[in-house]
């Protein structure tokens, strides 16, 4: 690929090294410029997409939001396309060059350091791109949000409006709808005993499908509390790690004792997190399922089984 390296002379690499030094310098510069440009483009795409996606997601006319999902999927595809392009360029212009130089010149000492620094600097710049990519991607994903209380409130309003509106098809006596049904149900006329069939509206049928999301939204506070507790374990572990390493070189017994006390404190916090995490998870699950059952009480038994299954999976 880089034909200029073919005339290598392994025994006499001092004069040639200037050649590859210039090459890594150029590729690094071009890689950084390339990322600067593509990050701008990625941000422009994100900024332009978010208001459109938000509007489409909230559009009430299209009940299944299929146009939103197609659009979102197309934007995700473009984001993926950008990410792949960066991956390929990094692979092709940085890693391949690095390996080629290493293979052809076997640089040592200071030159080896320069070559490794080239790779590390590019890798670090690549990581910055990845972080920015995540930020954009999360912002795009956040447009796929619906406050299910709104949909549920519509169902409640509809129920209030229709529950006493129907009459028996046979004798005309009133038939009241006793609760929110989400599938067809046969209702008996108390006057003439005729079986009438009640067919819920499209939005009432959806209750069964969004009930879990709504319950999740209602239990979001406890979910977050559980997640935060779960993260503490790793966090404290990583805090302890450098302290433990520092002990290896510490001669001063006073400082040593202080560091050990700090470690003990962090370990206690870590143990606290290990103890609390399953408890907080249970707390969250209880709330979520209680809300879920409130929304669709007809499936309460089924939901209780699922709750028990989830609880049984938690190791304490």
């Amino acid at each position: 690929m880089f034909g200029l390296f073919n005339k290598k002379d392994a025994d006499n690499n001092t004069s040639v090294s200037a050649e590859w030094l210039a090459q890594i310098h150029e590729n690094q510069q071009r890689f950084f410029d390339f990322l600067d440009k593509i990050e701008v483009r990625m941000q422009e795409l994100t900024d332009a997409a978010i208001p459109e996606l938000t509007e489409m997601r909230n559009n009430t006319e299209e009940s299944f939001k299929m146009d939103f999902h197609r659009m979102k999927s197309g934007i995700d595809g473009q984001m993926e396309n950008i990410r792949k392009k960066v991956y390929d360029v990094h692979d092709d212009k940085i890693l391949d060059l690095y390996h080629e130089i290493k293979h052809n010149y076997s640089p040592k000492d200071k030159e080896r350091d320069l070559l490794d620094t080239f790779r590390t600097d590019c890798r670090n710049r690549y990581n910055i791109f990845e972080e920015k990519y995540q930020v954009c991607s999360n912002a795009i994903n956040a447009t796929d949000y619906e406050d299910y209380e709104i949909a549920y409130q519509k169902v409640l309003d509809e129920y209030a409006a229709i529950k006493d509106k129907f009459n028996c098809k046979q004798c005309g006596s009133p038939i009241s709808i006793e609760k929110i049904f989400f599938i067809n149900v046969h209702l008996n006329c108390s006057a003439c005993q005729t079986q009438n069939t009640f067919e819920p509206s499209t939005q009432a049928r959806m209750v069964q499908h969004f009930a879990q999301d709504l319950a999740q939204q209602r239990a979001a506070d406890l979910y977050e509390k559980y997640q935060k507790e779960d993260e503490k374990e790793r966090f404290h572990y990583h805090e302890m790690h450098p302290l433990k390493l520092s002990l290896n070189f510490e001669k001063d017994s006073k400082i040593k004792a202080e560091v050990e006390a700090k470690i003990a404190d962090l370990e206690a916090k870590r143990q606290e997190s290990i103890k609390n995490t399953p408890l907080f998870r249970k707390e969250y699950l209880h709330k979520k399922f209680a809300e879920w059952k409130k929304i669709i009480p007809d499936l309460a038994d089924h939901l209780e089984t699922r709750l028990q299954n989830e609880l049984a999976n938690i190791e304490e």
Binding site: I183, N184, E199, R306
Partner: peptide, 20 residues
């Protein structure tokens, strides 16, 4: 009929979700 289908299409998925 449609009423029975509504039950089937609720109960079978519910069983799938229950089955560990």
């Amino acid at each position: 009929d449609a009423t029975i289908w509504g039950e089937l299409n609720t109960i079978w998925p519910a069983r799938m979700a229950e089955d560990t």
